[in-house]
Design a protein around this nucleic acid. Structure first.
Lengths: 310, 310
DNA sequence: CTCACATCATAGGAGATTCCTGGGGCTCCT
DNA sequence: AGGAGCCCCAGGAATCTCCTATGATGTGAG
């Protein structure tokens, strides 16, 4: 008998409109004493008489007149909230957040957003991931539900990693001399490289792949230039200022545009970035996340070399 | 676990803002499992996951982002409703409805409204009563809480009648001949009268008073002209087309303005209208009604002859 | 004027809900 | 590796909701 409730307001409105507790109870499908009790509770919590009980039926007081529009407003707001949630649930509106970093975004970012908007024109899409550790952190903290990122091997720590495709890492140079044969670890160790800063981040896949490859030579890769994004790295490689290493799938997209006179060649042995869907182990994925996973997987597999998850 | 409740929304918002069920529970003064249960119930009724339970703390989903402004809107509407009722309760805003008919309104209507507005500038005042039977019917049906009306004697039928003042009924004429001595029942029965139609309504006080007076002559009053309002009746009397009968208190207000060459004289024996506060027997009067009664009583007593209720 | 009817209030009880305490398990941080 | 923080689950007491049955009162028709 202390807090105001939606049920009380509903009973109040029905009573107000019918001028009768019995009729209100009929409409709401309750017994008359139940509605009576709710209205009385509302009067008690507000400290005001809302209806005068007068012989046959009840009559609204002026305070009830005052309350009515506000009560309607409250119930309308509740209905609106419910509708908004339902629209979000059915992906008519609302936001879909998905993690995607580096190579994956480079390949599939724009197309993926286009795919989503085609099916669900009303939604807002957020493709988060300025850098790879952010994405992983966001996954770990639960800020994003699932992501597609490049993994070196199996970086699963409470995470479920589902490989989707792999893409070969290739050596890009403007000097045809250096492209005549696959680049070995020995040559790579001596190379002067420009690498996107993001690529060299601690947990990044390419960094780990290359570090493993160079492990036998006992040297770290020599980075002459570090830049923020892959595009800049490719452009610099095109000008012959340094060489770089990018996924094979990005070659067709970047070289003609940014470094028309550069070419590429495999590493020896061939090295691969694995693109995978990652989410928290044991999580129940929302329809939105499942949709993103499905679309992102389809897109990536049409570009890079599909991998069947074991 | 089926209907959406305000409590659920409150718990949801607190949890959303703190990113933690424990912190939300602290703020709301509940134990943590209680808040947890409310949030889970909300998720169930909406059929949507609002928070991801992730290790330490919880993280809002995008659906929760969607819901939040709506939830705030609902609670704000509730607060606004509560405030509106409190303002109405303390007579800062809202409507005060009071019944007042005929003579009473003529005497005290404008002044009473002015008195109320002076004390409570925000309120709306409704002085209802186009005719006397309406007022009585409204009282009986509970549409108005209390009224000040003229009563012939004690018209109490489930009504509490509190006499406040009485006013003599006087005979008004433009012919000085007819004002030389008090008008007897005999003379009245022969007179040619103009009376406001409202005044002659079945249950009206003046009608009953005059009928009782004429009872001895065995005749009914001869009404030559019937009009709607007292003002017109007085004006016609001023032009000498007929005589009329009005309460003494109305003379000063009406004669100089509408019938400057008319005069008045008592009846013999003197007849009186009694002005009384009337409300349903056994009703608990609201502060608004008490205020109106107090102010109306003060006004009337300053104009007409006070009567102490027995 | 009286009787049948309609309406609201009250009472008591079954069932659901709310909210607590206590305990267990999982992360995160050091 | 251990402690601390946080969430979930279980069980139980208090409360609330809602019902049926019944009483009280005013209304309207005969």
């Amino acid at each position: 008998m202390r807090v105001l409730s939606l049920h009380q307001l509903t009973c109040f409105l029905a009573t107000y409109e019918h001028g009768s507790l019995t009729a209100a109870a009929d409409e709401l499908g309750y017994a008359q004493p139940s509605v009576s009790e709710q209205v009385r509770a509302l009067e008690k919590t507000l400290g005001v008489q809302l209806f005068r009980r007068v012989g046959r039926g009840v009559v609204a007081t002026t305070v009830a007149d005052t309350l009515r529009p506000h009560a309607e407003q409250v119930l309308a707001a509740v209905e609106e909230a419910r509708r908004a949630v339902q629209r979000a649930r059915t992906l008519q509106t609302g936001t879909i957040r998905f993690g995607m970093f580096g190579t994956a975004r480079l390949y599939a970012g724009a197309d993926l957003v286009a795919d989503v908007l085609e099916r669900h024109p009303g939604v807002r899409v957020e493709l988060v991931g300025q850098n790879s550790s952010d994405v992983f952190e966001d996954l770990r903290r639960g800020r994003i539900e699932a992501a597609m990122i490049a993994v070196p091997g199996l970086t699963g720590e409470g995470m479920t990693v589902t490989p989707v495709a792999r893409d070969e890492l290739v050596y890009v140079s403007a000097d045809p001399e250096r492209l005549t044969s696959p680049v070995t670890a020995q040559r790579l160790a001596r190379a002067s490289l420009v690498m996107p800063e993001t690529t060299w981040r601690a947990e990044d896949s390419t960094r780990i792949v290359l570090r493993q490859m160079l492990h036998e030579t006992g040297r770290n890769p020599t980075t002459r230039i570090e830049v923020e994004d892959v595009e800049t790295a490719v452009e610099l490689a095109g000008r012959g200022l340094a060489d770089t290493i990018i996924p094979r799938g990005a070659v067709d997209q970047l070289l003609p545009r940014l470094a028309p006179n550069a070419g590429f060649v495999s590493l020896r042995p061939r090295q691969y970035d694995t693109l995978a869907i990652v989410h928290r182990a044991g999580a129940v994925l929302s329809p939105a996340a499942q949709l993103m996973i499905e679309l992102a997987t389809a897109r990536i597999r049409s570009i890079a070399e599909p991998v069947t998850p074991r």
